[in-house]
């Protein structure tokens, strides 16, 4: 009885569209590698050393505390 209840619950969870079966498996974490605010000098040095152009994004809208520390999170 307990086994069939567990199997039934598992079936509901696994077939439910409401939650990803495995977020780790289906998260696409690809992202631009940003130098963060406060770190402009190292960005400039990297561009010079690697002979690449510097892309600078100026933001007028504001940057929150989380976004200032992690380019993939927060608001900016």
């Amino acid at each position: 009885m307990r086994r069939s209840l567990f199997a039934a619950l598992a079936a509901v969870v696994l077939t439910s569209p409401a939650v990803a079966a495995d977020p780790a498996a289906c998260t696409d974490r690809s992202a631009i590698r940003w130098h963060l605010p406060g770190d402009f000098e190292s960005a400039q040095k990297a561009a010079d050393k690697e002979k690449r152009l510097l892309l600078v994004k100026g933001i007028a809208f504001g940057v929150d505390e989380v976004g200032a520390k992690d380019a993939t999170k927060g608001c900016w």
Binding site: P37, E50, L54, F61, W76
Partner: peptide
């Protein structure tokens, strides 16, 4: 961008954090 450029962002004058005088 990751292959060919160096990327940087900063707050140019809006509210909150992320300002950078050198930038």
């Amino acid at each position: 961008v990751n292959r060919r450029f160096i990327s940087f962002f900063y707050n140019t004058g809006g509210p909150g954090q992320g300002k950078d005088e050198k930038a």
